[in-house]
Write a protein that binds this DNA or RNA. Structure first.
Lengths: 135, 135
DNA sequence: ACAAACACGAGAATCATTATCGTTAAAGCG
DNA sequence: CGCTTTAACGATAATGATTCTCGTGTTTGT
């Protein structure tokens, strides 16, 4: 080895690595490992999809979030991103932009001496319809 | 039944309900169902702990987040809350206050006709130490 | 082209969470 | 106050996502 062994990430330019990366870039949205595996139609083993997604995340080439149901979702990094507002009643989801938060996140990271990688923002509540039904 | 059946939430004032609620209030922090169950020392079945925590969450008496490892964590609602900035290198976590975001969340919810219940905000990056090691 | 190291695939193992179902105990009523 | 109804409990099985294992196939460096 040269200077220092990197980390958990994969290093080779293998079939699986290519497929996962390409497929992830093709999706403009967050996808789970399972979805990606299905989408690849068995051309790649499930475990391999997991491995490569993790590797991409570690290498900073993918962002990760947790879905509502606790699954991990990945998205290719350079995609313009947005956040969600979720209704606890009917599950309706709207995309929202969060520019003030983006700025705040950057500033806060800096304040604490962190190099910003990413952030997670979600708002949940009751939408107009469900809010009315609740009262 | 009287007017309308509520929802998935528990309605009775049962042993389990009491225990879970009290234990949750005692913790000032987020706890997982498993932790709470352990903490109760088997005085309550695991499934029951899950049931009651969910019920509290649905009733708006508890907030929920997902831990880094994907587990669900609950916290009694009225606790003053904060967010976290997490280092992807060493896992170090700092508490941060996010007043601007709180306000933004409230405003955004209103804009979309939602009754705000809660939100999730997390920032991740590399802390000063790990950031230096990476470059 | 060859050897060594890494990545792959298939399936087993984990672990949190949910569902099942017979039993126990609240709540309301006569 | 005892009875009936029905929600909640407990133990355990089932589910589902993710991780691990290990033998085999590929990529890389020389």
């Amino acid at each position: 080895m040269s200077t220092e062994s990197p980390n958990t990430a994969t290093t080779r330019n293998s079939k699986g690595r290519q497929l996962v990366k390409t497929a992830l870039e093709a999706c403009r949205e967050f996808v789970t490992a399972q979805q990606l595996h299905t989408q690849l139609g068995g051309r790649l083993g499930l475990a391999t999809v997991y491995r490569n997604l993790q590797a991409l995340a570690v290498n900073g080439q993918a962002d990760t979030v947790r879905t509502d149901s606790g699954e991990m979702a990945y998205r290719h990094c350079s995609t313009a991103h947005h956040h969600h507002i979720i209704c606890r009643g009917c599950g309706a989801t709207k995309e929202i932009t969060a520019e003030p938060v983006e700025r705040w996140a950057a500033a806060t990271a800096e304040q604490h001496g962190y190099q910003l990688i990413g952030h997670t923002v979600e708002i949940y509540g009751f939408c107009a319809k469900c809010g009315a039904a609740t009262r």
